[in-house]
Amino acid sequence: MATRTFKVWRGDKDGGEFKEYSVEVQPGMVVLDGIHRIQAEHSSDLAVRWNCKAGKCGSCSMEINGKPRLGCMTRLNSLPEGTVTVQPLKTFPLIKDLVTDVSWNFEQNKRIPPVKLKPRDADGNYRMMQEDIDRVQEFRKCIECFLCQDVCHVLRDHHKHDHFVGPRFMIRLAQLEMHPLDTVDRVPAMRKEFGSGWCNITRCCTEVCPEHIQITDNGIIPMKERVVDRYYDPIAWFLKKVFGGSKA
């Protein structure tokens, strides 16, 4: 039977090292299968977070050959021949081995003002048409694997966690802002507290999304455009200067 070498980061926040394991592989195996085999045959204390093994729970996010990916959705035969390097996510604090503390993301979610629906129609119902919520439904495919957060260089390399909420929560904001029944204005917060201007739209978030959500084109850029509507429209700015008016 064929074997494959896995080079897996072992350690915690105080330090660690790569360890190599030789694993028997079969056709159809994914990286997470290889990790499980290491746990079963070589090192039962190897820490990895996983759950559904079907690309829907978003738990097994890791960096495989340097790219943020889901371990359960990365077939070994899709990787180049040779050693498979497996690391924890870079953007979040390491707990142990391949497990990181992603709780920062849940804190960001709490900061976002929730939906506040407009009054019901006269007959007591809410109504919206499919075309009104198609855009929103795309964003609801998000499985919160946080690969987009991990690859976003604003967080990953520049550590601007205090300034930018990250792509996952930009599409959460878009999902709420575009909702046909919602009444909350999040545009000022999007610009300041959530830092839409920190994104320079290099689209890595879209490239790594396992749900193929068009994070940049359908989420972040439309939100940046709404900020432009409010704050960077020179015609509106001129009229405000001439005729006065409150700053939104």
Partner: peptide, 29 residues
């Protein structure tokens, strides 16, 4: 900033499109 995904970027002070690059918001005009 960055040259590719998950590849280290140039060692510059990063401000995104919040400072000098605010002018990018004039795209629609």
């Amino acid at each position: 900033t960055p040259p590719a995904c998950a590849v280290g970027g140039a060692p510059l002070k990063y401000r995104g499109e919040t400072a000098l690059l605010l002018f990018q918001n004039l795209h629609r005009y």
